[in-house]
Design a protein around this nucleic acid. Structure first.
Length: 231
DNA sequence: GCCCAGGTGGGTA
DNA sequence: TACCCACATGGG
């Protein structure tokens, strides 16, 4: 039996994989749908994102070219269910413009680019921040980068592994320093964290109710890190 | 009515 | 750099 707070991130992965099985992310029918989902899911419930993507699909607008040529107001109406619809319509246009201008919508050419400069370039696109860029690099381009989201930070904190700095890169370093670079594993790991957060370790859930990580979790109440908590 | 949901950009000190 | 706020819908 492991003591609380001492599980390695590799063990945590195995525990979740054993409990939930492979998640086969990202849920999308194309690389562009994946990227659109990454933008629309920003601070939004996935069920609302599905509605917005469904709207785009239903009118044949789920392509870079269609996003570029469709008026922003019209896009905003289509992505309305995902919230922040005006802001997100602008973001989608910025992303589609970048894809066309820089890559001629060629995902294979993009995937062949050097990782570090590509990440910097994508971060310069309006609406693409650190989590979104890593979603895209990992799930659309199969690059071995680890995605950090609110669920991941919460899990790391509850495991008693919080880094000294509360920065995206600090959380990301925890994973890339302890796991072999593997896009397949990284993709499953992130998906499992989301699954686990939704299913067992919700932000306001009772203490790790039904949580497969209960025995290695340092806390579990209100999303606050409580070192030394023993029940 | 309140909190939460697979964040990001822009402004200010 | 470090806050603070706008952006907004839908479900529990």
């Amino acid at each position: 039996m492991m003591a609380k707070g001492t599980a390695s991130l590799g063990e945590v992965y195995e525990l979740m994989l054993g409990r939930y099985g492979p998640q086969h992310w990202w849920p999308a029918d194309s690389w562009f749908e994946m990227m659109v989902g990454a933008v629309l899911t920003q601070s939004a419930a996935w069920t609302n994102v599905e509605k917005a993507i469904g709207n785009l699909k239903s009118v044949g607008k789920l392509s870079p070219e269609a996003i570029r040529t469709t008026p922003q107001d019209e896009l905003a109406a289509l992505v309305y269910p995902s919230g922040y619809y005006n802001a997100k319509a602008r973001k989608l246009k910025a992303l589609a413009e970048y894809l066309g201008t820089t890559w001629e919508d060629d995902i294979d050419a993009m995937a062949g680019a050097d990782l570090a400069p590509l990440r910097v370039e994508l971060l310069a696109v309006h609406g693409v921040g650190e989590e979104t860029v890593d979603d895209i690099l990992l799930y659309a381009l199969d690059k071995p980068v680890f995605v950090i989201d609110a669920y991941t930070r919460r899990l790391v904190d509850r495991l008693g592994l919080a880094p000294g700095e509360d920065r995206y890169s600090a959380y990301q370093a925890l994973f890339i320093e302890r796991l072999e670079p593997d896009a397949e594993v990284y993709g499953e790991y992130h998906a499992l964290i989301v699954r686990h957060a939704k299913e067992a370790c919700r932000k306001t859930a009772p203490l790790c109710n039904g949580c497969v990580l209960r025995e290695v979790c340092a806390t579990g109440r209100g999303g606050e890190f409580a070192p030394g908590r023993t029940s």
